[in-house]
Design a protein around this nucleic acid. Structure first.
Lengths: 149, 149
DNA sequence: GTCAGTGCAAACTTTTTGCAACTAC
DNA sequence: GTAGTTGCAAAAAGTTTGCACTGAC
């Protein structure tokens, strides 16, 4: 897999630039993340790693911090706990979040983000963008209609 | 103050529509929120209310839930805890959040949100939008330059 | 009078931290 | 060898919950 290799390279670059050690745990976490699809949270990542390369929760938190800092992973905060997603080779999209059931859908979107990117933000160097649209999803709308009847 | 009255009216409408009681605590929370400027968190709100009308944390959480549901208040999740802001008569803006110091700046923006609003989102009824731009703010850039020297 | 709402504290959940053991360099 | 990392468990921080009391309707 080309992407995994590129990401690992990027991570090595980041670790070296910041005088962090290249521990097997860190690469195992990165590898696991880029083996999964879509969003994930710490709990998912931790339990997914139980079989192959067991890593403690503390280390996962630590590694995720580095990955977010190195811009290989993006952190979201929708509900009670943090959610993450791959940042490398992951096309721009926004998130629609249902106020009722909390479900989240990704929607591809290039135009909007290119507009945003061309904005001049004085003194601020952007690293990534997140657009959330809150509302009611189709399923929950149907349910509430039925309830009101 | 006109706005406070309008908001209260809206809240009454919402409470009645949903068979909730119109308790003094709820109006005190709403009033406090619309007396403050900018973003706030539960802790700030709670301590700001200590003097005039003391309300328990549990009630503040409860009331905020109702206010978010009634779309009079918007909930954000930047860092460890939830942040809130007024939603009524609060013009569209995005948020620039510094990855280093965590500071948040509001930037007014009408065009972008009008583009988003005109999007057709099949089966999804939007209630509000949040655009976050993560990056490094001017202050932190300066600091890190100095450090690297 | 009734039951939704409140205050309080305890419980819960997610994340952070302290510390001894370990290991990348 | 030595400091940065890890794992574990304890602690912290934010939020939710259980329960008795109160007050809006």
């Amino acid at each position: 897999m080309k992407i995994k290799e590129s990401v690992k390279q990027e991570f090595v670059k980041y670790l070296e630039a910041n005088n962090h050690r290249k521990t097997p745990e860190r690469f195992a976490v990165l590898d696991q993340i880029y083996s999964m699809s879509g969003h994930f949270d710490i709990e998912m990542l931790h339990s997914a790693m139980q079989d192959q390369f067991r890593v403690s929760l503390a280390t996962i938190y630590n590694t995720l911090e580095l990955l977010v800092d190195s811009q290989l992973v993006v952190r979201h905060k929708f509900g009670v706990y943090a959610q993450y997603e791959k940042a490398f080779n992951n096309s721009n999209h926004y998130h629609m979040i249902c106020n009722v059931c909390g479900e989240m859908q990704e929607v591809k979107e290039e135009l909007l983000f290119s507009i945003i990117k061309n904005r001049k933000l004085k003194k601020f160097t952007p690293s990534h963008y997140a657009l959330y649209i809150y509302g009611t999803c189709g399923k929950c709308k149907t349910v509430s209609k039925k309830r009101k009847k």
